[in-house]
Write a protein that binds this DNA or RNA. Structure first.
Lengths: 334, 334
DNA sequence: TGATTCTGCGTTACCGGTAACGCTCCAACC
DNA sequence: GGTTGGAGCGTTACCGGTAACGCAGAATCA
């Protein structure tokens, strides 16, 4: 038995019309009579016709309905939520999500980009605004709709949808000061793509600069952010500077890890030491104190990025810099 | 300036060879001289040639290098890790990942499948073994390499790579008994795709059947598993049956939420009530007691699924049922 | 009533690769 | 010296759609 999929020609023949008419009916473009439409649709259904997007995307100069999405990782953290929102929104507009992760391997970004561009995608969504030279060159040459997300970039290559991380850090720094904290530490990780969280630390430091508070003592770990890293980082920091009275963590996951360490070390929070995180992650709900953090709407980032990308693909006018608000939520840990 | 991408013909012309020779060189297939190879590669690089996979996949009867991957969600839980592993492994073999999520919308699976099959993917990786009628019909008609993951299926449509959830539950049930627990509850969620976690509950019940323990009191929530749901489920269950002496949660995230509720309700764990989860999730490390749970290697699932899929695509012989071991880790909470 | 427009549909050419096949050399061999 | 075979490369046809254009007949209009 021949298992080959039926193609448009066969559907058209079965319906007694030309290929082109069948194509028009199936795409609902151009003009045709209701009677013709019904016949074509019926035959397509009867034959289990599956349109070949490969041929469609290839044959027309219009780009494909593929959109490349690149994030550092999918597990833990917030990127999984972002990608979920992107995928759901792209789906609504009839696009498909071609995913890529580059966890701890910056060079992967370039390889991924090469293989994705080969599919002539309709657009791209990349995380972070720092790219390698090769990446930048390829993106410039490709001249396709491109959204850089997560880190707000006021002068994006094309479009930027993100959070003002510097301000997040700055605001949190001010909160630390208003709580009377003086000997302050920061625990973060050194991600391959800088800028992803660094701006937050810089804003934080900026807020404390020129105040009575001592310079921020930083512990930068060489791994992805996680509970362990938060716990470990807090331990390192406190053993180096036992007089610390507050720590700002790169994200809530790490902050929760830090809390765990403090608890095991017999330090009371916020009495002996203040703790704050970032991201408004679900994980913080396990604490019996509300964590001081900055809430981010990851869904909003994903949705806004996708919607603006689709607008650009369609040639509609778009706002090229879209800031997603972040809200500092004072909890009980600082 | 014309921004059009150079195509193979232009590369070939620049190198002074025919299109076909250039194609052979770039794919490293067939025979050509070293001199020719060097010239073609040089011109391709100079012109920033990006091969058009659309045309390649379309033109040859060989399928594309796209692989469709469908999971319930990417955030929280373990699927993000699985997809990461799949994507990384697919990348090593030169395939691209076309992702889809169907969180709480079973009908999405069918829509997604339709749009993905239109790309004539080289293979598919689906989560769970329960599919709608329409889905099953489409899969049968498509006759492409297909791996069902997560839930081990001894009679898979094509290939199954997963965990024996029934055994996980059964083993855990035995542990509950050996710890002397008698009045036992279960808290889980009602996912759109059954089978994803239900087998675990069934195994658990099976272990307790015919013993002195009372029938399991179940609380099945109508949402995705999360801290909140764990907390909420525990509360419901305990208010209904205050004499419960142990609860089995669908996963660690929920178990941690349950722990939080018990703590706030003044119940000591494992003294007043025993707690166990499933999955070996990172989140459990925030507890100051080690959680009793079953460890799963999500990376192993993703990697094994991908490797066996690639083998099947290449036509190599494969093992059609691959069980990924799960290890019960007795902690301090039961 | 003739000119004009619109509707519905068919014809043709083409997208950018790859498979299949064939041709031309040149070396090796009997 | 003629035959053989393989290396190296070109020619042709084709994948399954879609854009562009054309054309007949019906509807509309002056």
């Amino acid at each position: 038995m021949d298992k080959r999929k039926p193609n448009l020609t066969e559907v058209a023949a079965a319906a007694g019309v030309s290929k082109m008419t069948a194509s028009r009916v199936l795409r609902n473009s151009g003009r045709f009579s209701e009677k013709t439409r019904a016949r074509v649709m019926q035959e397509a259904a009867r034959l289990n016709y599956v349109p070949n997007r490969l041929a469609a995307a290839f044959g027309s100069d219009a780009a494909s309905t593929l959109v490349g999405v690149l994030v550092p990782r999918l597990s833990g953290g917030l990127f999984g939520q972002v990608v979920e929102a992107i995928d759901a929104t792209l789906g609504r507009f009839g696009y498909q999500t071609l995913i890529g992760t580059y966890e701890n391997r910056g060079d992967q970004e370039e390889n991924w980009l090469k293989s994705v561009l080969a599919w002539r995608p309709a657009g791209l969504i990349l995380t972070g605004r720092a790219h390698s030279e090769g990446t930048t060159a390829m993106l410039k040459a490709a001249t396709l709709p491109l959204v850089e997300i997560w880190d707000l970039n006021t002068r994006p290559m094309d479009i930027s949808v993100g959070i003002n991380h510097f301000d997040c850090g700055y605001e949190m720094g001010q909160l630390f000061l208003s709580r009377g904290r003086q000997r302050i530490g920061y625990v973060g990780t050194d991600e391959t793509t800088p800028g992803l969280s660094r701006a937050r630390m810089e804003g934080f430091q900026q807020a404390l600069k020129g105040t009575l508070a001592l310079p921020v003592e930083s512990e930068i770990l060489d791994d992805r952010p996680s509970f362990y890293q938060g716990c470990y980082g807090a331990q390192n920091l406190i053993s180096r500077r036992p007089d610390l009275d507050a720590i700002y963590f790169q994200n809530d996951e790490m902050a929760v890890g830090g809390m765990a360490f403090c608890q095991s070390a017999g330090l009371s929070v916020p009495g002996d030491i203040g703790i704050a995180g970032w991201g408004g992650m679900d994980v913080a709900t396990v604490l019996n104190q509300r964590l001081t953090t900055t809430n981010i709407s990851t869904r909003a980032v994903g949705r806004a990025a996708t919607e603006v990308l689709v607008s650009r693909i369609r040639g509609d006018p778009v706002n090229e810099v879209i800031e997603i608000p972040a809200v500092l939520v004072p909890g009980k840990t600082l």
